[in-house]
Each structure stands twice: as C-alpha cells, then as structure tokens.
Write a protein that binds this DNA or RNA. Structure first.
Lengths: 253, 253
DNA sequence: ATGGTGGTTATCACTATTTGATATTGCCGA
DNA sequence: TCGGCAATATCAAATAGTGATAACCACCAT
C-alpha cells in the first residue's frame, strides 16, 4: 500500500480509522463489500478491521443484515471532546441565554482548517436535520461564520484563503465568485458581523458574530439561522444583531 | 500482551482505540507519559499510536506543551452517528417542539448495555456542564430514564438487571438499595413514567417517559430535568407529564 | 551558567502479527 | 431447488509492529 516514509506510522491503525470515516450522512450502514468499495482496502483487511472495531465496541452490527453501523461510543468520543475544549464551557451558558431570550436557533461554529465545524447547536425551530446536529463541516468561505472569522485575520491570509480554499455550490444562489467573497469579508471586518442569504439553503438568512481571542483574532463564531420568509435582512439585523454581538463578545475566545 | 484467541483481531488497531478512550471528562489533554499510565501500553507503542492518530487528524497537539487533545474529528464522528440512528431524526422535531412549548431542558436517552447514554440534549436553563452535552453515560439503574426503559421489559430481565447492573452513589441521597429500585421500576410500569429526585444531582427532579417500539419495549426515553427548588414532584407531574408522555408517544421507537 | 531530571524523540534487530490469496460456508432471490 | 453473491475461515509468507535502549531536549534548582 501507499507506504509513508515514517517509521512511527502504524498503518494498521490508520486502516481502522479509514473504516470509521467511511460512515457519513449518506452512508449510515455498510456491509463488508461496501467498506471495501469505500476505503479501497483489501477484503481481508476490511474484514479484520471491522471485526476488531466491533469487538471493541466501536461498531454495532445488525445480525440479520450483517451491516455495520456507528455505535454509541461515537457519542462518547464527542463527550470527551466537549470537555477537552475550554471554549465550549465558556460558550454554552451564553448560547443558552441567547436562545431563551430570542427563541431562535443559535450555533457555535469553529474554524477547522478551511472548513467550519458546528460544535454547539441549540435548535429552536423545526428545520432540516443537518442544521440541527453538531459536527457538520462546511467550507468556511461559503458561510457567514467562516467569513466573519476570516475577517479578523490579516489581508494576506484573507487573500490566500479566498484564492485557495474550497467552495461548494449548495444552492442555485450560492456565491461562487472569489473576489465577491473577498469583498464581503472585507466589509464584514468593518461591520464586525457577517450576514448571508440563500447560501447553504434557500430562504435561510445566516448572521454571525466573531468570538475574539485576546489577540483580536476569531477562532469561533456565534451564528443564527433565521427564516428568510418571516424576516428580511434588515429586520434580522435590527432584531437580533445587538444581542448576538453581546453574546459573542461575552465569550472571550 | 493479553492475546485474544481470535485470528481476526487486529491488536494494533485496538491499541490505537485505547489511546482515544484514555480521554474523558477529567482527562482532557494528555502527554505521552500520561497515556502510558492510563492505557498500560508500552511507551513505544503509545508513541507510535499517538503519532499516527495525530497524522490522521484524530488528535491535536499543542506544540508548546506537547500535550495531545481530541480533535474536531471526534465531532464529525458524532455527526455520522446521528445520521445512522433513525431514532434521532424522528425524535428531534418532537423534542424541539416540547422544548419551545415548555421552556425546559429535554433530553433523549437511549439504553446502551447496562447504562443509558444521552443522545440529544436541548438545554434551556443554565445547569451544570455535564448535563448539557451529549454522549454522557450513566448507570441505567440510577436514572429515571433507565428505570422507565427497564419497566417495559419482562420480570426476568428486570430482576436480572436489578441484581447485576452497576450502581454509583452520585449524591448522598442516591438510592442504592436494589430491591427498592426493583419496586420503583415495577411502579413505573404501572404508571407509564418514572420520576426521581436528588439521584444524580441534589435538588434535581428527573422525569422520564418511554419511547416504545412496535413490540411495546422501550430502547429510548424522553427525559426532563427540573429544579427541585422551583418545583416539587407533584407540581412537576401536573405541569409537564401530559406533554412529556405525548412527546414520547409521538416518536414511535 | 551548570548539571540533573523527566519526558520526548529516534533507532533497530527480532519476530509476532498482519497480509492477501484462496477455500469454505451461508444466504437470498430467481 | 438451484445459482450466485457475500460473508467467513484458513494459512504460508513476509512485512510491519514491538519493545528495549539510546540520544536528545527543555526546564528547574542550584
């Protein structure tokens, strides 16, 4: 296989992780042959890895269909993550406060390479499933959260990100022009917030405020999703921006 | 090492998983020597496993302190889990509805061996951190959710669980008498719900309703935590029980 | 500065463990 | 009932992981 010139690299472990990562939102239960197809590993390797993961409690298995599925242990790992990230404990009470006061869905997004990842979500309205559960990754440039975080960085970094980082066309209206995005980030820097519409989902307005660290840079953002049918952008700003900024500023990244 | 008589068992992968599981709520960032101590693995093995996990993006590392930490990938795994479990998608909208209507914290708990695990949490009040984040595991017998799920099983299973399953004394008032617990489960069967007080946390009232499958058995429960200072048990039942039962019944396990 | 200590990184010969090809079994649909 | 696909089981070959040891490094106390 693709040997890494790295004597400390345990390829068997890496192969096991490949199995775990084969599961995602459109691959929720996989057979051995599915796993072979998705990972490109040898049939025997897949057999041994999946078996070991099952014995170790990382995969459940339906005895009827023989399909493997993620186990509850995957949630336990998230639990350990939550304790390990000090930002979570600082942000959660503020988000709860905001959620109660405003009655709208609030999220905490963090930057993770060139993507953002939602690490806390307090859904308040019925919305689509992906928008209600933690761990979702989206290209940073496509999102209000990602843009507002970028806006706290240097011009060089913004330029580099706008030219290199990935973009996905999620809706017919998703902004795909990289210089438009760069301009939008620059104005977010002036404003101290970022608002988008129809970017990941039609008729969704997304408003994000940066959670700044002591150096002024943001590694996280507080973000809300508002129905673009019930409100227009101006109304969203009037109604939610002040307390959103308060909430984000109160977290101290 | 402790050889398992299992030719399909990949011990290197298992060792890697041991590293992941070394992180928990009181071990949020670990050095190599910490990992050696917590896992009992050889120093070299720990070195190689941690290095591999780092290269593969499963562990972050502080370059200054050299400490390893869970990475965002742990949340991505939770995301995959959520998609894989069909109960989550059915329960979430109902929980959101309840949360909005009642303004109180609601959780979805699932049975996982002899423990329960919280798989959805919609916090509405500021409370302690562990009660607000998903993935927490608690001994089933100690919790209202666990007891109400058990109450849908046969007498044999209840008897077996009550005599064998683990108990932890979380507060001074945690019920530790196994026959008292058995009686409590039996009455939960009559009532169709289960209420506890001061069990995991002092001044916390916990009320749980079963999410029944087609066979009548519950593998999940909807549960709320209410301040025992603001309410007494009677008030909690009057105020929340009807809609909690509705919510749970509407999920169709 | 200096030396000592604890922890991290690097090296390597040995062999236990994984590999991958193949054989066998079991299951489901035609 | 049979045919075909997928899941299990087996095994000799050799690679990949082991674990002991050594070098290195950063920090602290002297």
């Amino acid at each position: 296989m693709e040997r890494k010139r790295d004597s400390l690299y345990a390829s068997t472990l890496a192969r096991g992780l490949q199995i775990l990562r084969a599961f995602d939102e459109s691959h929720v239960a996989l057979s051995l042959t599915d796993l072979v197809a998705r990972t490109g590993l040898e049939k025997s390797a897949v057999q041994r890895m999946a078996h070991t993961l099952h014995v170790e409690g990382m995969l459940d298995r339906d005895p009827k269909s023989r399909l493997y599925r993620p186990s509850h242990a995957w949630l336990e790992l998230a639990y350990a993550y939550y304790w390990s990230d000090p930002l979570i404990a600082r942000a959660l009470p503020k988000l709860i406060e905001f959620s109660r006061a405003m009655g709208e869905t609030v999220n905490l997004a963090q930057i993770s390479g060139d993507h953002i990842i939602y690490s806390l979500r307090l859904p308040n309205q019925r919305t689509h499933f992906a928008a209600s559960i933690v761990g979702r990754r989206l290209p940073a440039l496509n999102t209000a959260s990602g843009r507002v975080m970028l806006s706290t960085r240097s011009d060089e970094e913004i330029g580099h990100a706008c030219s290199r980082w990935p973009l996905v066309q999620a809706t017919r209206k998703t902004l795909m022009d990289r210089s438009d995005i760069a301009r939008h980030i620059k104005s977010a820097r002036e404003d101290g917030f970022c608002i988008t519409r129809d970017q990941m989902l039609l008729n969704e307005i997304s408003l994000a405020a940066p959670v700044r660290g002591t150096d002024g840079q943001a590694h996280a953002a507080v973000q809300i999703s508002i129905s673009g049918i019930a409100f227009n952008e101006k109304q969203v700003l009037e109604r939610f921006l002040p307390s959103l900024l308060d909430t984000a500023a109160g977290i101290l990244g």
